[in-house]
Write a protein that binds this DNA or RNA. Sequence first.
DNA 1: TCAAAAGTGTTTCCCTTACACCCATGC
DNA 2: GCATGGGTGTAAGGGAAACACTTTTGA
Lengths: 229, 229
Amino acid sequence: MGHQLDPEFEPYFKLGISVTLVLYGFEDGHLKIYIQKITKNPYAGAWALPGVLIKPHEGLETKSKEIAQEAIGNGDVFLEQLNAFGKIYRHPVGRVIDIAFYGLINMQSDIHDQRKDKESKWVSVKKVPELAYDHNEIFTLSRQRLKRRLINRPIGFKLLPKEFTLNEMQQLYEQILGHPLDKRNFRKKLTKLKVLIAKGHEKNDGPGRKPRLFMFNEDRYSHYMEQGF
Amino acid sequence: MGHQLDPEFEPYFKLGISVTLVLYGFEDGHLKIYIQKITKNPYAGAWALPGVLIKPHEGLETKSKEIAQEAIGNGDVFLEQLNAFGKIYRHPVGRVIDIAFYGLINMQSDIHDQRKDKESKWVSVKKVPELAYDHNEIFTLSRQRLKRRLINRPIGFKLLPKEFTLNEMQQLYEQILGHPLDKRNFRKKLTKLKVLIAKGHEKNDGPGRKPRLFMFNEDRYSHYMEQGF
DNA sequence: TCAAAAGTGTTTCCCTTACACCCATGC
DNA sequence: GCATGGGTGTAAGGGAAACACTTTTGA
């Protein structure tokens, strides 16, 4: 900033702020999140969500995109702020307030680069291990938010490939909502919303009938994104 | 904290964090928020939401309660975190990240003390003036959140006096939602939810029939607060 | 007796839910 | 031909929305 700090304010400008990201993807019928191993002490060797401390001149949204860029080589993905986490002794180095974001990516096209500098992996949301700091708490909150958002907005598409089958989409919804859905009712609702455009048929490797492929209708999509269902 | 900061982390722990509060009340059929005049430069004389910078050992929730305590002499009110606001040049003194909360109070019983040290007032949400910093943006977001919350949770009661008439309650809902409601449908819904307990009749000063008074059913209330409608 | 506010039911429509069988394909 | 996954329709019930008049009271 270049400001000379007024001494009156001096005791206040001593906090750290970190930005943490819960990145969601959908692959092989499973909802997954991205985690990485911490390389530095303290907590070296522990799994954690990607995140960094910010410097005074850095912006929150910008930084969250940078985290995505480092994780998957792509900073141009859907991100939304979750909440601030301010437990007083949260970080071992000093007082840190964490601003958490969650992001939704399409694992087929949005991952441009798997990171090399740190050990990282995508884990099913059902098998998330113990994480460092209070990251399990952040993860839990992000799941609740994702569920709420899915009910009110068509964010599901962010997690699906360009072309997808209705059964894939239903699997995704079931995993986020945490309960099974009726196939016919699910399709009826989609039909009514008119958000889908039919494409051809996919080659299916296993046995069984070839599923129909769909894309989503961008116009309708952005309409519902603003207005809600 | 008493920590000696590792030099590696030194450039990071230089930010300021403020907590800001949008306090809502309902009076004379109007939804209102609490604002106060800033006494110090910069921005001296401008209206703003109540808020303060925090020190490294202070907690976010604790601080938001302290702000309520200073504003209305009562820190025991409903508060919920809104969002972090991180515009880089938001604060003239240095980089400040603001964590905003909103609160709901009953103006008849929760205001124990009107603050004396600063000029302050309650203004209708329809007449909120230009505010300092980015407080108008925070206010706007808080209104959206309040609306969303009202649809899913019975938070309306937080804003009403212990005993209230159905028309008062409907007015409140209409103001938060921003559109008129049908009187009969509104009452039908309330009846079905069984959240109300009938009390006596109020003395009405003007002309017109005496309205029935109601209290809310605490058990039902907390049930819906957890589960949603 | 008039003005002002409170109170009260019915109908229609649409969305939600529950539910079971046939179709295409690969092996 | 059989196992595997994909696809389809109908009926019943419940909540949402539209809609207008009567009652009580104070002046």
